[in-house]
C-alpha cells in the first residue's frame, strides 16, 4: 500500500472540517475524493502534504508514519501536490517555476531531460518558458502547476480541484494528461474534485465526502452508478 490515512480529524479553531476519515491508495492507482464545497476535501489533501496539521489520526506513506514531518520533508520523500488555483510562483519564469519544482534534486534526476519531456506533454509551456508565471492564462498556469509537480518524478501526486476555473475543453485535456500519467507511467494519483463525472471517469476507485466524513466508497464505475451519487452530484 502506498498511502494509508487513518481516522483523520482536522479542525480550524472550533470548526471541525474533517472527522474520522480513512482511506487508502495502492501503488499505481488513481483515486478520487469527491464532494461538495466545504466537505473537507482540500483539508485532507493539505494534511497529507503537511500544510495543515491534524488534530488526530495518522498518515502512512510507504509504511512510514509521516504525520510528524514538515511539508518540505514530505516533498523530499516523493509526495507532490498540484494546489487548488495552481498557485504558480508569479514572478518566476515558467522555466524557473519548473526548476523550483526540482529543488534539491539536480544530482538525482536529469532536470533538462525531464523539462524537455514536460515541454512535450505541455507544449505551451515551452513557448512560454521565459514568461513570468503571472502572465500565463488560467489554463496555462494549471498546466505549469502540474508540470512543476511532475518534474521531481514523484511517487504520489496529490491534485487539488484541477478543473476549477478552467473552460470545459481544457478540463478534458488536463484530465486526459492525468489519465495518461496514471495508465502509461504508473503514477499514483490522489485526485480531489468537484467535477464528479470527469474524475470518476479516469479513476480506479473513489470516496464520497460529506460534511467531513466519508459517506460512500467503492470502485469508480460503481460510484458513478450509485443512486445517491447520481442524485446529489450528477443531478439525475
Amino acid at each position: 500500500m502506498l498511502l494509508e490515512v487513518r481516522d483523520l480529524h482536522i479542525s480550524y479553531g472550533d470548526i471541525q472540517a474533517v472527522c474520522g476519515v480513512g482511506f487508502h491508495l495502492e501503488e499505481g492507482e488513481l483515486v478520487s475524493i469527491i464532494g461538495a464545497n466545504g466537505a473537507g476535501k482540500t483539508s485532507i489533501l493539505q494534511s497529507i502534504m503537511g500544510i495543515v496539521s491534524t488534530k488526530k489520526g495518522s498518515v502512512i506513506f510507504k509504511g512510514r508514519e509521516i504525520s510528524g514531518l514538515a511539508s518540505h520533508e514530505r516533498a523530499r520523500i516523493g509526495i507532490r501536490m498540484v494546489p487548488e488555483r495552481s498557485r504558480v510562483f508569479p514572478r518566476l519564469t515558467v522555466y524557473e517555476n519548473l526548476l523550483a519544482g526540482a529543488y534539491g534534486l539536480r544530482k538525482k534526476i536529469d532536470v533538462e531531460k525531464r523539462t524537455e519531456w514536460l515541454y512535450s506533454v505541455f507544449p505551451v509551456l515551452k513557448e512560454r518558458s521565459s514568461q513570468l508565471g503571472h502572465t500565463l492564462s488560467g489554463g496555462e498556469q494549471q498546466q505549469l502547476a502540474i508540470a512543476r509537480a511532475l518534474i521531481s518524478e514523484p511517487e504520489l501526486l496529490l491534485v487539488d480541484e484541477v478543473s476549477m476555473g478552467l473552460m470545459p475543453k481544457l478540463v478534458d485535456e488536463v484530465f486526459e494528461v492525468l489519465r495518461q500519467l496514471n495508465k502509461e507511467q504508473g503514477l499514483s494519483i490522489l485526485l480531489v474534485e468537484q467535477n464528479v463525472v470527469a474524475s470518476l471517469a479516469i479513476s480506479t476507485r473513489g470516496y464520497v465526502l460529506e460534511t467531513g466524513t466519508c459517506a460512500i466508497q467503492g470502485d469508480a464505475a460503481e460510484l458513478a452508478d450509485n443512486p445517491r451519487v447520481k442524485e446529489v452530484y450528477l443531478g439525475h
Partner: peptide, 20 residues
C-alpha cells in the same frame, strides 16, 4: 531560486521540498 520562490509563496515552496 529557493529564496525567490519562498518569498513569493512560502507554503507552496514547502511543497516543492524547499525548507522555507
Amino acid at each position: 531560486l529557493a529564496m525567490r520562490a519562498a518569498s513569493q509563496d512560502a507554503v507552496i515552496a514547502g511543497t516543492m521540498g524547499i525548507n522555507s
